[in-house]
Write a protein that binds this DNA or RNA. Structure first.
Lengths: 215, 215
DNA sequence: GTCTATACAGAGATAGAC
DNA sequence: GTCTATCTCTGTATAGAC
């Protein structure tokens, strides 16, 4: 039927326009979902943010759910990446310090991703059941086993490994999810790189010392 | 016109029905707002949760905004209460330990309140500007001054007081806001009182030791 | 590949009967 | 004080012109 048109678009550059548009839409969607969660987000608002006509969103993504899934998958990849850091061979003080540093770096660089994740959990994680009960749980079991190994080897105090991880998550993600409250409390427009370095140093000091890893 | 009916309802007990209904609606609204935030929440859904006809919500609360405000004000009162705890005369180890204990108790007893607050901050705190820039900021300045006093007196390590507070907030509120993730990770249906006591003990140990308050 | 027009569902709000 | 009926707006989704 539309063989001419099809040929034309195929000959242009395979999926170039599509790819560009998808990225623009995806980024706008991230902002919207981070603020309002899945239910509160509106496609119209995403279209305005992306500066594209509203029906185009439907052209690139079948529906709201599919768009959300696409965004969410990106974030999970990011999350898992941050979490595969330390290994049993590492020195615990360094390994935990690096993990805290990395998590804070993520809060600084990808606050939107963190917020979407937070929104998803707040809404009862309806789209993350598989992830929470499989991928994350396996990863977590692995990490806590490493920490327990360090404890058994007398390298650090006897802390419940799970609680230590939750502790680090809570403290670091807070800087992304509650960023507005923090900025407001400190009377700053934005947190600078120096601010984040100070935060990192303070956090690492408290936690490593608190776990008996440094004096 | 309806003098008989009016008399009847007035003679019942002044505002008894109204009060009861308001409470039921308020509690349903809390659940809904905690899950979906202001924008994502729907009055219809709140009515279903409260098991009242939808128009009744409008009878008791002018509109969605007013209902939300009512719920939010309750939460701020709760939040401030938790935050007016420690004073300069306290011993820092005990004061900070008590504050952590109290914050965790709030996460355990009022997870819904915590989630509404989290949602509000995630959405850019459009209804909390006054609170964040006034009440909270004053309270926070006061608390950090106390901590700084302890540091100057050589009672604890030199930690940035603001960051210590944010640290405690992040770590404790995490157990309310990310409760689902935590339960899923631990493979538990609910966290027991014993779980919370263990969490409290671990958190207090890490933070007080990490700040040089205990050996 | 882009965009106008439109169908249709859900939600907020209010008038007015009971 | 309760609830039906209704108005209006917003939002999702799709058909079809260009």
């Amino acid at each position: 039927m539309n063989s001419v048109k099809e040929y034309k678009s195929a000959s242009y550059k395979t999926g170039k326009i599509r790819k560009d548009n998808e990225i623009v839409i995806r980024e706008a969607a991230e902002q919207e979902f981070a603020e309002f969660g899945f239910k509160g987000a509106s496609i119209m608002s995403i279209a305005k943010r992306a500066n594209v006509p509203r029906p185009n969103i439907h052209y690139y993504f079948k529906n709201k759910q599919e768009l959300y899934n696409a965004v969410l998958m990106d974030i999970l990849a990011l999350w898992n990446k941050a979490f595969t850091e330390f290994t049993a061979e590492d020195e615990p003080a360094e390994a935990i310090g690096n993990y805290i540093r990395l998590k804070l770096m993520y809060s600084r660089c990808y606050p939107t991703a963190s917020k979407i994740f937070a929104n998803e959990i707040l809404q009862g994680a309806p789209h993350l059941n598989t992830y929470l009960n499989n991928d994350l749980r396996v990863l977590l079991a692995h990490k806590t086993a490493i920490i327990q190994g360090w404890i058994d080897a007398g390298k650090m105090d006897a802390i419940q490994p799970y609680y230590l991880i939750f502790f680090i998550w809570g403290a670091t993600q807070h800087y992304a999810d509650f960023g507005i409250q923090i900025k407001s409390a400190l009377g700053k427009e934005e947190l600078s790189e120096e601010d984040f370095e100070e935060i990192t140093a303070n956090l690492i000091q408290i936690i490593t010392k608190g776990c008996g890893l440094v004096k």
